[in-house]
Structures are given as C-alpha cells and as structure tokens.
Design a protein around this nucleic acid. Sequence first.
DNA 1: GACTAGTCTTTCCGTCATGGAAAACGTCTC
DNA 2: GAGACGTTTTCCATGACGGAAAGACTAGTC
Lengths: 108, 108
Amino acid sequence: MSVPRFDEVVHAPNRLQICALLVAVDRAEFATLRESLGVADSVLSKHLKVLVDAGYVVLAKPAGHGRVRTWASITGSGRTAFAGHVAELQRLAATADPSSVEAGTERY
Amino acid sequence: MSVPRFDEVVHAPNRLQICALLVAVDRAEFATLRESLGVADSVLSKHLKVLVDAGYVVLAKPAGHGRVRTWASITGSGRTAFAGHVAELQRLAATADPSSVEAGTERY
DNA sequence: GACTAGTCTTTCCGTCATGGAAAACGTCTC
DNA sequence: GAGACGTTTTCCATGACGGAAAGACTAGTC
C-alpha cells in the first residue's frame, strides 16, 4: 500500500484526470486524452511532459504502422504516486469526521 | 448526498486543508489555522477571504472579551462543496471505469 | 487622550503555473 | 519534393500563490 503523500505533480486538475484515466485503462491515445480533457494539443503535450519528466508516465510511438500515434501509459511509480496522493486526500477528508462530510445538507 | 463536482475554490491545497479542518472541528481560531497550515498571516487571510466570498466559510469576531480573535467555521454550502469535491476525487480515483474512457485498448 | 500591543487585512512585489495560438518539427504518403 | 498528419515547442497573456511590510482596528495602559 502506498504512503499518503501529497504530490504537486499529480494534484493539478488536468494531470489528476490524466492519471486517473491512465490508471483505469493502462494506455490511451494522445487524441483520446486530449478530447477527454477538452484541452488544446499543446496543453496536453505539456502536461504529459511534466508527468514523463516525473517518471509517472511513459510515451510510446509505435512506428511502422501508418501514422504516428502516441500512446501514453502510467508507470509503476506513477501508480504509486497517484495512489499515495489519493490516499492523502482521503486522509484529509477523513480527519474530518466522515459522517459530517456526508451530512452537508442544510445547516447553518 | 452531494453531487460529485470538482470545485476550483476547494481544490487549492491550502484551502482543501482549511476545509478539512473546519469540517472536522466546526470552528477554529485564526491562529490555530495559521499554525496548522504553516503559512504567513497574510496567506491565511487571503485564503479565508476566498472561501468567505464563495460562501463556504463564515468568520466571527466575538467582541467584548479581551483581544479580538477571529473564529472561522464552515457553512452548509461549504460542507456540500467539500463533500462534493471529495466525492469527485473518489470518482476519479475509482480505478474501474473503462467505459468512460473508451480508449482503444486493442492492438496497434 | 496618547500610546502600545495584539490581531487580522491589504498592498506590493516577485515567481511560477496554466492555457491557447501559432510556428516548428518529424514522419509518413503520394 | 510537396503535403498531410500528429506532436512538440515557442511565444504571450493571465492569474494564482506566497511572503514581507504597511494599514487598520480594537482593547488595554498610562
């Protein structure tokens, strides 16, 4: 199990979503990710670069078959970081009595 | 039950922590929060302002007894927003949801 | 009342993250 | 070689963030 640890790299909304997607599917195409996030090419490319530089994601560009298509997949340490980050968020959310979190109906 | 909804206001690390603390204790002193977060006065003040402007937190400055001390507490909509945000994060983190991704996991 | 101290707020400033458009760059396909 | 495609990089504008310092306000002290 991973240690709860807040991770700046993972925390940014778009990257959080990228990580979540990649954890779920193991690998996804660049275009698929871009559409899922609803951002411009350049934006996705930059976020992926950050994740790659952190060692959380690897890109594969299988050559030979038709057009170039970039596939992204999450690495082991990427999974660990993501899981750790989520664990930290849950720890934070739970510090706070879980029942009171659900009870946010109509108070005050 | 709150609807999972990503909330920019709540997502910022420091504010996430503020919300978590306030959900847990219902009210906290300014100084306590500042020490918990480990930030400067001005920083806490500004984050609280953002939360207050969003209607997620209210500040009380009970007068009469000794020095001025500001107490912060979370509102009903603050609880809802926090719970919703956490729910959204958990939804994201839910590893088994390939349907929403639709990435071609087939050959290439 | 003038002064001091305590407790936030606001202002100012530098830095960094972010997003999009456009240009640049490879890699095929013809 | 010319184009088309898919990704990356550059350029630029905007905004978030944090801290120090200055302000503002209140409550005691003399």
